[in-house]
Structures are given as C-alpha cells and as structure tokens.
Design a protein around this nucleic acid. Sequence first.
DNA 1: CTGAAAGCGCTTACAG
DNA 2: CTGAAAGCGCTTACAG
Lengths: 342, 342
Amino acid sequence: MATVKDIAKLAGVSTATVSRALANPQKVTDATKLKVQNAADQLGYAPNAIARSLRTQESKTIVVILPDIGNQFFTDIIKGIEQIAHKNAYKVLLGDAGNDVDRATKYLDLVYSKQADGVLSLTADLPIDKLVDDNAQAKFPLVMACEYYWDAAIPSVHIDNEYSARLVIESLVQMGHYKIACITGASGNSISIARMQGFRDSMRKWGLQIPEQYIVEGDYSLLSGYEIAAELLSLHDRPTAIFCHNDEMAIGVLKRAREIGVKVPQQLSVVGFDNIPFCEYCTPELSTVHQPRQLIGETAMKLLLNILSGKKPNPEITLPTQLLIRGTTMPPPLDQRLKIDI
Amino acid sequence: MATVKDIAKLAGVSTATVSRALANPQKVTDATKLKVQNAADQLGYAPNAIARSLRTQESKTIVVILPDIGNQFFTDIIKGIEQIAHKNAYKVLLGDAGNDVDRATKYLDLVYSKQADGVLSLTADLPIDKLVDDNAQAKFPLVMACEYYWDAAIPSVHIDNEYSARLVIESLVQMGHYKIACITGASGNSISIARMQGFRDSMRKWGLQIPEQYIVEGDYSLLSGYEIAAELLSLHDRPTAIFCHNDEMAIGVLKRAREIGVKVPQQLSVVGFDNIPFCEYCTPELSTVHQPRQLIGETAMKLLLNILSGKKPNPEITLPTQLLIRGTTMPPPLDQRLKIDI
DNA sequence: CTGAAAGCGCTTACAG
DNA sequence: CTGAAAGCGCTTACAG
C-alpha cells in the first residue's frame, strides 16, 4: 500500500506538501497539486484513515445503538441517519444490542477507544451513569432518538407519545368503545410509560374504568401480541378494543383473533403504533399511529452533528404523528356501545 | 483521557511494561501486573484502539455489506454474523447499500483505509473488478453470503437456490398445478437466476410450457408483488399458482388477490421464499422455503475468520433448505388440474 | 508556498 | 522479566 511518503518521493516534494495537496488543495500551487495528484493516482493511493484519526483525534464515525435489528420500525430511522451522516462525511457504525443492556453498553466503549466520535442511541435501556456526569450532562457527544430519559439533559428527538396515545383512545371512545385493553412494551420502557399515561388520562377524562387485567405487558414482538391476545380474548368481560404499543404486537393480535373466530373489526377493534410497511398488507389493514421515522433519524443526526461541531443544540425536539384509521377499527356492537352525549 | 504513559508514570514502570501487563499478563511478574492494573483502574484507562490499529496493522473490525436494511430477510443473518464476530473479538460495521451499487462499493474503501480487516458481502451487486484480480482471486479478505459470483474464486455460503426452486415446483405439480407463474428478483440477481433455472428445469422435466407473460421481474418489495399480481391475475389465461422469489412479494400478491376477490388457496396458490417471521402472520399462512439464516451468517463469519487468520478456507459451502407447505397452497380447481400418472 | 520535525498512543523486536 | 527506542502513517504548527 502506498503512503504519503511514497507519493512524496515520486512527486519530488515533502510529505507535508502531499498532505496539503490532498486535503487542502487551495494551500498549494496548481503545479504541485497536479504533481501530487498524478503521483497519488499512479500509486493507487488510499489514505490510511486510522493514521489520520490518531493524528486529528477524530474518527469521523458515529455509532448508532439499535435495540433490536429485527424490529422493522428502525429501518427508516437508520436510513434518515445515514443520509445525513454520509452527506457530512461521517461513517455510521450500526450496533445491534439484541435487546440486551450489556451488549448495548458495550457499544459506548467505541467512543472511549476513539473509534467513534459520538453516539446516537435508539434505546434508553442503558445505565444512565455511563452516559451522564453528576450534573446530568452527557459525558460525550450523545443524542437520543425515540426513547429518552426524564432526568438527564440529553438532547433527544421523539414524538409526543402521550398525546398520540390520547388520539387513539379519543378515536375509540368517539366510536363508542369503553372496554379498551392495552398491550404495552417492557415495563421500564420510556415510550411505553408515556403511551400508558396518555391512555389513562384519556380514559379518566371520559370517566371510564380500566380493569386491571386489561393492561398486559408485552415485548414488542409478534409472538407476544399473539400470546397476550389469547388471555385478553378469553376474559369473562372481553374488551371490544385493544390498543397495542406497536404494530408487531397488533399483528399478533389479529392472528389470534382470526384463529379463535373473533371478527375484526366487527367484534374487536385493534390499533397498533408506528405504521410499519406491513400494516397495509394485513387483513384487514391495520389502524395505527404514523411516525415520521426518516425525519426522526435525519433530525437526530443533525443534532449530533451540531454537538460534534461544538454547538449547543436545542435539547429536545418533538415531531408530529398522525392517527391512521384503517380497516381494524369500527364502532363496537350496539349492546356494548358507550352512551354519551358528545 | 489517560494513556499508557500516564499509567507508566503512576506505576513506576515503562510504557512497554504497561502494554505487556495489559495485553499479555503472563509475560510479566504478578507484582508488576498488579501495580499496572491498579494504576490503570485508578486513572480510568481505556485503550486507544486507533493507536493500536495503526501499530498492529489490524482493526479487528469487519464490514458487512447489506443490500437493503429494510429487508427482514437479513436480520437473522446479521445476528449470526455478530454472534461469531463478537465471540472472536471482532467488531462489526454494518453498511447499508440501500440497493445502490455505488453506495455498496463505497464500503469497500473501509478496507483500503484500514478501518476494516475484511468484508462480508450479502450482495453480489458490486463491480467484480474491485473485488478480484486478474486471476479471479479476492484482493482482500472477502466472503460472500447468500449471493455469489459464478466466475470468481470468492468463498461463499449459500443455499442451493436451483434445487430449492425445483422443490417448490415439484410440490405444485404434484398437487396438479401446471399454469404456474413466477415473480423474480431483479434481472441480474444471481439468486433469482438460479431460482429461475430450477423453475424452468422442473417445468421442462414434466413437459410443461411456461407462457412468456407468466414470468415477471419484481424487486423483492411488498409493493412490486402487489403490482405484478394485478397483471398476472388479469391475464386471459390466469395462472393457478404463483411462485414468488421472496416472501415480501408473495405477501403483496396475497393482498392483491384479496382485493380483487381471487380466493387463496382455492383459486390461487402462492409460494414465497425465505420464511421471514411475518409468513406465519399472513392470512392464510404463507407457504415458503425456509432458509437457515442464522447459520448462514455464522458460517460466513467463520469462513472470514479463517481467511483473516491466514488459512485457506473451503471455497464454497451449501446449506440445506426446507419447503414449508402452509395455508396458501392446495390443488387447483378440478377443471384446471394437470392429469398425469405419478 | 514549502519543508523539517514533532507527535498522536500504542506495540514489539532487541538488549540486557 | 524489563526498558529504551523505533515506528505505524498521517497532520500541522513553526520557520523560512
């Protein structure tokens, strides 16, 4: 492999000039620029990014911590991140945590070992003391997307989960539903907590009860939706609607309902969250909350870029969502319909 | 950030000893090991991987080139790759090509810039001259998985696509289908070519014709299946079965059939390929060909590890598949059934 | 505009 | 077992 030294020799200049000619051509005569360029081409020169990193103390790489690469939801977010990153000459290292805190934490080492300049985390399932100091300030360039911490000053990009959940419940109540169950994400999950809050607030506003067994904890997988639906649908007082905290679980519910002969949406309304591509390919098509995923990724990356260049970024950005009523929701059977004056 | 120098000072030894105590503790007295260890802990030392890379000339990182991160199919393959990589102290850089040759090619630079030691490519949509020299030998540590080149000696791990396609067709023919259409991947795609070959061979074996308009090129997306199904199902002589070269397209076909009132499987059989998780959540559940995805990833990574450690690997490994007949296939209507003696 | 020199933080033959 | 020294391949103040 050719190095700057080889080019210097061939072009008859110093290594300093080679470096300048390649990186800052305006700092060099046209003649030398040409000489160096030719020599570099002739030798098939490829700069050693490792050596450059060591010298400049930056890797031009950021690491994205992904809760689970198997989750469709993150696809467009990553596309958004990559687009902005590449446009700004940053490389993206994707770290899949496989839903494991320790694996996720491991990726932070890349910053300390100087292989990455910053972190864009799509999970808040990380030990907070590794991220922030005693003043709740981030220890290194860090941005959160989708998830966030309540108690730390980490810049983050997310939707209004509480409000979006209220939209869902309002819509169901307007249709006449009052027996509404909910399948959540893991118990500590910040997103799920906010959606739960929105759910509870909305129900309280209408003076509606939530039986304890109507709230069940899932794990965002197809299977958990499928299994929990079995419980929910065999309840003595069966819910007429199920609000799932993501689309995968909702799709699991649809399958179970089909198998045990509960008609969707006539006997059961189902709402998901995220609007992954498969929603429109379900039978019936899944009602859900659309998130501007690509925009979330782009915005988060721009925030990180700001931090990386030394600017103080806005600490928090909230992006809009949209309730999509499709085929899995309709008013409940007449005898189970809420009677209120609207 | 503390460096070996700081530790050396604090522990009262040389930097050479620090390096040895940390990396090869057996080459050092227990006493010094302890001193160094303590000093390192006290300073919160994190080794600079960049400096180490520059010195050792290896990054302990491999890059995986992904055709499209949006494709569910690759999830488990990546899980397999990461598992073996991490177990062997290699980091994995995931590069999403977004179905773009140029973007895919860009990731090869990481090897030349010394940021990665080798490449594991999940796509063959790459300029071959960038990969191999005039003797068709790989220019750097490189392994292919799933896709491959016919004309280059690049180690690869894949299934027998031709044989698997024959399994599908045999099964359909046994049921009595003879009007079998096919939705392929992009025209140059090695996998799709092989599956097409298997399809043709099988049909020829039974003396069955394939009308030209029964073969349509898709792009492995939900949407392309959905759109192509509209053409296929409006044909004057409609096929009784459609073999899709992946599950996404098959799911698109299911949606279209539902919309225009073609009953699956009574009036139309559909078979996919890959067995992604969503297959079992379709209505009806999708018949498909199962690929041992995680094993493909693990095997490919082991192959790359072998190359990285200087061994000559087996050039090619074929892994078994399994035809899964589920709810989307059954014999065609009696009047459209093939009459043969089996 | 150009060059000589130092240095980023490690590791590793080479002596002792 | 330990240390002094060189060097991986760059970039960048500092002189000129």
